[in-house]
Design a binder for these strands. Structure first.
Length: 525
RNA sequence: GGCAGUGUAGCUCAGCGGUAGAGCAGAGGACUCAUAAGCCUUUGGUCGGCGGUUCAAAUCCGCCCCCUGCCA
């Protein structure tokens, strides 16, 4: 079977990561881990977009070379992914020479085929901001505001890609491939844009204006501008043209492509990923079957408004991970948003999700289960000798959780997948109260029943600790260690059946999995 | 202005033609193995508004309003 190839947007190395960056990478990481658990080979690619004018300017401002500047910002991203247990197989840094060679080879190919052309453009240019201005930048009085400084009329030549040649193909493709974009309703936004006039795409900047980029192989006076650089990472780091570019140690492109999931934010769907990218691939000769699928996620707002540096409401994922642990943060950003829609970040909700659900619900269940087994049976489980309807009902819940979980996870409804697994947690907590093992322990005649209750609790938790592993890999590994059982090498979801713990299994020592946090709502990040 | 999404309990949301649902928050209770955790019960809603179709509408249709997004 073809490997599951999943990518994320590559982050722009102009500022350190915020919660939105973290959410996207965790989402992709959870899916990658789920697919692996489901038995598929997975290739997970993420990375950074390091070229461009903003980087060039920011580097100048602090007196660093562009490469030194992006290396610094890049380390903020890589250390965060490390901290959050985002485990990728490939790292796409656009300053990587391997990537540059692929970009240049692609551009040369398109140039040779006549899909690129050079044309002059006359417009208003801000000397201070070093960019051309459009009517959008005009104020209500029709003039360019003072923030643009001196504005001059300027003519500039640039290279263009014949995007408009492929627009009709794209319209048809979108209409005939409803799975292209998830959630499906976003395809309307794309078709809406395509109804407008089709313009070709400017793909260059004169080298005197922008030097921090990939030079056009056929015209030394220009560097590539954005799209053929950033979007290309999805194929360049998957081994596209690896042989003719002399790129060693790359994945086998013919096996990996197309990607099952380009995980991106809704802000970069139109025009970049839903227009430019499929058209670029089509222009390069990719067939309809070779077009990747887009998974479009929403944004984390703060108190109903967008996160932005200017309003000072940027949420720092590092601080959250320090307070709530990496798994506490991963759990929150997976359970409190429906994939594809926006959600509101709030201190109250992340504290509630940690203290109420992880500490009080999940963690406490593990703790009370092991603790009773240790107290009454020295941690030794007996799986045979007694059964009743209450036990059967718990087993039923456990059995039903797996298919529900798989269906939801496969459909990118991570929050529903968590809820499916959580039914076991809720049922098991209620089961403790209804079977009262602490009372059974006082009556020697109930010994066999007590054994069965203790066994059911531990076994049920094993299932939870497998299902939630993609979401909270560290905590679930710790939980399994306390139970004294772990997934054997090559374990897949279909191996998960009642009876993972053998008769006579020895449990470990209970330690609170998510220690309850005493946090004032107002003082939390 | 065009297109789309959304509007259901204090909060987050599910339901999408057949007697209003879940979780959290609030209230009450029984219990004690456990991280002052967990369990049970319970308060709370003219399902954005108006009109229509139907034996029956939160659910379908029309108009309007709010918020959000994309485009102009």
């Amino acid at each position: 079977m073809k490997p599951y190839y999943i990518t994320t947007a590559i982050d722009y190395t102009n500022a350190p990561p915020h919660i939105g960056h973290a959410y996207e990478k965790v989402l992709a990481d959870v899916m990658a881990r789920f697919q692996r658990l489901a038995g598929r080979e997975v290739y997970f690619l993420t990375g950074v977009d390091q070229h461009g004018q903003k980087v060039q300017k920011s580097a100048e401002k602090v007196g660093l070379s562009p490469q030194a500047f992006v290396d610094g910002i890049t380390s903020h991203f890589t250390s965060l992914w490390d901290k959050l247990n985002v485990r990728y197989d490939g790292w796409a840094a656009t300053t990587d020479p391997k990537h540059k060679r692929v970009v240049q080879a692609m551009l040369q190919k398109l140039h040779d085929e006549g899909q690129l052309y050079k044309q002059g453009y006359t417009g208003f240019y801000s000397v201070r901001q070093e960019q051309f201005l459009t009517d959008k930048e005009r104020g209500p009085d029709g003039k360019f505001g003072e923030e643009w400084g001196e504005v001059v009329e300027l003519e500039e030549e640039n290279w263009y890609f014949r995007l408009s040649d492929h627009v009709e193909w794209l319209k048809t493709y979108i209409k005939t491939h409803p799975d292209f974009i998830f959630p499906a309703h976003r395809a309307n936004d794309v078709l809406n844009v395509l109804e407008g006039k089709a313009q070709d795409l400017c793909i260059s900047r004169p080298v005197e204006r922008l030097s921090w980029g990939i030079p056009l192989p056929f015209d030394e006076n220009f560097v590539n501008f954005v799209w053929f650089d950033a979007l290309t990472n999805y194929i360049s780091f998957a081994g596209y043209l690896a042989e003719e570019c002399g790129n060693a140690d790359m994945p086998d492109f013919s096996k990996l492509w197309p990607s099952e999931a380009h995980v991106i934010g809704k802000d970069i769907l139109v025009p970049a990923h839903a227009l430019y990218w499929p058209i670029m691939l089509h222009a390069l000769g990719f067939s309809d079957e070779q077009i990747p699928r887009l998974i479009v996620h929403g944004w984390w707002n703060v108190k109903g408004s967008k996160m932005s540096k200017s309003t000072g409401n940027v949420i720092d994922p590092n601080a959250l991970a320090d307070t709530f642990t990496a798994d506490g943060l991963r759990y929150y950003v997976m359970r409190d948003i429906a994939t594809g829609y926006d959600a509101d970040f709030s201190d109250e909700r992340i504290i509630m999700s940690y203290n109420k659900e992880l500490a009080g619900g999940l963690g406490n269940l593990l703790n009370r289960s092991i603790n009773m087994a240790q107290k009454y049976r020295n941690g030794l489980l007996v799986s045979e000798g007694y059964d009743d309807a209450e036990n059967a009902a718990l087993r039923q819940t456990v059995a039903e959780a797996l298919p529900a979980y798989q269906e939801k996870m496969n459909a990118w409804a991570i929050h529903d997948g968590i809820a499916a697994a959580w039914k076991i947690v809720s049922h098991a907590n209620a089961y403790v109260d209804s079977t009262k093992p602490f009372s059974l322990a006082k009556d020697p005649e109930q010994a066999a029943r007590l054994d069965s209750v203790l066994y059911h609790l531990a076994e049920a938790f094993v299932h939870v600790a497998v299902l939630l592993n993609p979401i909270m890999p560290t905590a679930m590994a710790t939980a399994r260690a306390q139970i004294g059982w772990d997934m054997p090498e090559g374990f897949v979801l279909s191996d998960l059946k009642w009876g993972m713990l053998p008769n006579g299994h020895q449990l470990g020592t209970p330690v609170p999995l998510f220690p309850r946090l005493e946090i004032e709502v107002s003082s939390a990040a």
